[in-house]
Amino acid sequence: MKRKSLIYSLFMKGGVILILFLIQFILPTYHHSSFSKIMILASYAIAYNFLLGYTGLMSLGHAMFFASGMYTMGLSILYLGFTPLEGLIFGTILTLTISIVFGLFALRTSGVSFLIVTLMFGQTLYLAILYYNEFTFGQDGFSITTYLGTLVIFGKEHLYSNPTIRYNFALIMLAVYLIITTIIILSPIGRILIAIRENEARTQLLGYNVFSYKLFALTFSGTLAGISGAMHALLFSYIGTTFAEIHHSISPLLWTLLGGAGTVIGPLLGTGVMYYLIDFISGITSNYLLVVGIILVLTIIWFPLGIMGTLRQRWIKWLP
């Protein structure tokens, strides 16, 4: 039974990835670039959903992880002359460390306190970036385009900002995230995480050390978010404080809830829908956050399971 749902689920994800791969050849330039952006942001949402949807821990500070990956990538290329690959590895190790340390503190609290603590930690990193503005360029941010160099594929040189490179790097990352999270969720570890979400006290009394599993989930989610940030820096070569603000912590929450928390495709769908919705509204008014607010309220009242969650409940039970 279990194996079957793993195969179904990987099959479906394979289909989504294949479609995303194929449509790049027919997408108009504008949407081509939107899709690249959506895929990067969706991988961030998938990282977020690993914690919220499968472990039941709601964080309001994930921008901290995203931004630390992003700034490590950007600053190490800028100041230390790292290559993008070195920057990525450095960024991954650093966010991994931050996640563990943060988790050791924050997971001492639970429920509402945990939320507030994540929010405040996120805000602290944001303030730190502003405070050390001589080093981080504060509110203005910076670009790493001129430091990036080129990428050699089959003997030909490409820029990282080349739309095809950008699209396919984003796609590869998305694919890896989808597959890794699916495998973990359907493994015995995933079963324990879901058990913690459903009934933490009982899981403890089945003999599991709940704290270490929560720490694992937080670390995994934080590190993935950090890698998303690093890749965002690489592919869009802009690093700025907007990615460390509270809004950027709330965004993955919104995408995940809208698409369906605890579903693997949900975050991707939620990100896409919101991206295009905001894109559309921005053409009419600059106050798109008003719409974000309204959608948040409406989703939580009438649609708490999100798009995919409702689909799963009504029609397709095996959806992971």
Partner: peptide, 13 residues
């Protein structure tokens, strides 16, 4: 028990 999970999952845990 884990009310939202199947009997299989409950015991498997």
């Amino acid at each position: 028990i884990f009310r939202n999970l199947s009997c299989y999952e409950n015991v498997a845990l």
